[in-house]
Design a protein around this nucleic acid. Structure first.
Length: 211
DNA sequence: CTTTAGATCGGCT
DNA sequence: GCCGATCTAAAGC
């Protein structure tokens, strides 16, 4: 990996959740795996800015499930859903704000063999292009709920020198049934590791030789 | 105690 | 494009 990277600091996580969601796109997420480190570039995020957002898990107030999201920014919120999948969020803002950013898509950079083994797939474009897929590939489960992203070594985030190069688009959030109109999803335009709508687009492209 | 809905994924009517 | 799998936390009774 060329270039030097430094870990995102606390100040990064104590700003507005929308800005954090936007700026996490292009950053590097790292997961300790034995004596190796899985690495990927975040290519898609969604903001869940707090308790007044009906789509947020924190809308109903603090519960056992969502309590880590009410902590001060800089830790993980990992939840289990649909009987199958874990999803990974970065908690943002001051204590009791109940805000965070869902990581929805990652471009694999390092440890790809381990990710493929975890997911039992060989197609790199089907490895981390969705919140459940990314969590599975990176070995993220409830043991990482409330993990310290600032000082811990199990999972952490790094600055990237290339953040600025990427073209970022925003859209409505995916997979929610309430408060669906807000443009709280951010992703890199034309990146093949984006989930959801991106998936259909790239499928089409792959079948179209004339492009 | 029982029911229900869910920040998803993968397979196929 | 649509639907079922599969489990958990929360809400209903």
């Amino acid at each position: 990996m060329a270039g030097r990277y430094r870990r995102l600091n606390k100040d990064f996580f104590l700003r507005s959740t929308i800005n954090i969601a936007k700026e996490l796109v292009g950053k590097i997420i790292c997961r300790k795996w034995g004596n190796r480190t899985l690495m990927g570039m975040i290519v898609e995020t969604e903001a869940y800015p707090g308790i007044n957002d009906p789509a947020s898990h924190t809308y109903i107030g603090k519960t056992k499930r969502n309590e880590s999201m009410f902590e001060e920014g800089g830790i993980a919120y990992v939840y289990f859903t649909y009987g199958n999948h874990y999803c990974f969020n970065v908690v943002t803002g001051l204590k009791d704000k109940g805000s965070g950013v869902l990581i929805r898509g990652v471009e694999p950079l390092d440890g790809i063999d381990i990710m493929m083994n975890n997911r039992n797939v060989t197609d790199i474009y089907n490895l981390t292009n969705g919140p459940g897929k990314f969590a599975h590939a990176f070995g993220i489960d409830k043991n990482l709920n409330a993990a310290d992203l600032l000082n811990g070594n199990d999972i952490f985030l790094l600055e990237s020198e290339e953040d600025i190069k990427h073209k970022i688009a925003k859209s409505k959030r995916i997979g929610i049934t309430k408060n669906t109109e807000k443009l709280y999803r951010f992703y890199i335009i034309d990146n093949p590791f984006v989930s959801g709508a991106g998936r259909a687009v790239f499928r089409k492209k792959n079948n179209d030789n004339s492009s």
